[in-house]
Nucleic acid binder design. Structure first.
Lengths: 257, 257
DNA sequence: CGTGGGCTTGAGCGTGGTCAAGTTGGGTGG
DNA sequence: CCACCCAACTTGACCACGCTCAAGCCCACG
């Protein structure tokens, strides 16, 4: 069932990239190497996709679950008037819509923000997978619940945080989530988003994103250039953002009993 | 296992109130009378609760699933600075957090906005229920997914809609959702929220909510007084709001295959 | 060396916030 | 039945956060 592999030039093997996914999921349930093989066996295809490409459009039938093995992806909705709202940023190891296949139509679109390696799991395989391994099913459901938590925190930001707070909060969140898969160190992380992307995620104009970033720089809280973010004073940044990471459920917990 | 029943004075019997819940869930799966009895049997208690009371606080252990049999409830988060964001409005028949019990802590609080009749299902009963009836489990999961869709649409509103559009959109949504359980007619519906509540839901100040409502009134789109909303021109309201109801998944569909 | 995408800066403006003072109306107690 | 009270609503004045438009800059890339 395994389809096309990504281009030969990739530095990381796909097998290694599955690590990101596993590092994220194992905090929800004790996954076995067997579970890992089960997932790999279901991958219908794994593609290398360039930046700015729609993986699936709004209103389409979610026939596949997309997993970002590598690269950044976003959920977004677009209003007729052209206004766009990014609803979620999906990082390496994130399942873009673990349980979306239950619904008949996508309520939002999915697009790459950077070049990305995308694994696609057909709906029927997902169903089979979850029936075969309750552990895996639980991990998928918990992942869905946590991503709903993130969605709610974003609503708080959009509704009740100022531009600086919002930006600071997003940076704290990304840093924490990237650390989870080993893609951020104590200093900072890669930040491939354009200021326009950040604006669409934060409900701001790109001009105001620029000014907001300058404010954070002038406060000596962050450095950001060449697609690299360095956080100079994370405590101060978190305080400013009113950031409380519990909503991310980062710690290992096999809860629910 | 059935606990205290609500006060004798209630006009509607609790049994009838379960109708709201069932009307909402049956669009996701073919529920049998047996499923209904199974739920009723699990109700640990059913209480009448006054307006403005926390059902469960942020950070608490979600030991129960709360179902709003009658009355309006909201999910909300509060920032230290006192700012409050309402994350969801839960109407009669809504399960407040169908699958929240999987997580060890509530990421948000749950509070009544009006006097309400609340059924509580203990976590262990929910687990048993979902194991006993896959149909019911599917309905709960789909309900969770749809409520995530609503959450995303709210993010679009908060991020990219103006105050009037946001207000119009919320009113369209509430009307559609209330119709689903038979609590709205072609004209309009009950609207028990204060302008402060609306502000907290829409990310606006209560003063601006007032002015926004006046604008909608002066446009001859709505009437709103005495906790009663009448929509004078729903098509125009929807157009103004950029409202597309597909995200609510109102139609009967037993999708996912 | 030219091109274009992304970033930066300035000027002007409008949406929506804040503060503060009324007004209305339903509910309670005398 | 009326007087009172309080919460919710309304209105005005003022102001700031963030938007728009427009021009210029930087630099990676072909």
């Amino acid at each position: 069932m395994v389809g096309e592999r990504s281009a030969a030039g990739d530095r990381r093997a796909n097998a290694t990239m599955l690590d990101y996914l596993f590092r994220r999921l194992t905090r929800f349930a004790d996954l076995t190497p067997g579970d890992r093989e089960r997932i790999e066996a279901c991958a219908w295809r794994i593609d290398r996709i360039e930046a700015g490409v729609d993986l699936i459009g709004e209103g389409a039938d979610p026939g596949f679950v997309n997993v970002a093995l590598d690269g950044w992806v976003c959920r977004y909705k677009q209003l007729e008037s052209g206004r766009r709202q990014i609803l979620a940023l999906l990082l390496p190891g994130d399942m873009c819509d673990p349980c979306m296949f239950l619904l008949p139509k996508m309520g939002h679109a999915l697009a790459t923000l950077t070049p990305a390696t995308i694994m696609r799991l057909p709906r029927r395989s997902m169903v089979a997978l979850m029936e075969a391994s309750p552990t895996l099913a639980k991990a998928f459901w918990l992942d869905t619940m946590v991503s709903a938590e993130v969605q709610r925190e974003w609503a708080v930001s959009l509704g009740r945080r100022t531009a600086v707070e919002r930006m600071a909060h997003l940076l704290c969140e990304l840093l924490a989530r990237l650390r989870l898969v080993g893609l951020a160190d104590a200093r900072g992380c890669e930040m491939p988003l354009t200021q326009a992307d950040l604006g669409d995620a934060l409900g701001l104009s790109s001009v105001h994103v620029n000014r907001t970033l300058q404010k954070l720089r002038s406060m000596r809280l962050i450095e950001l250039r060449n697609k690299r973010l360095d956080v100079l004073d994370e405590d101060a940044l978190r305080t400013l953002a009113l950031f409380d990471p519990t909503y991310l459920h980062l710690k290992n917990h096999r809860a629910g009993r």
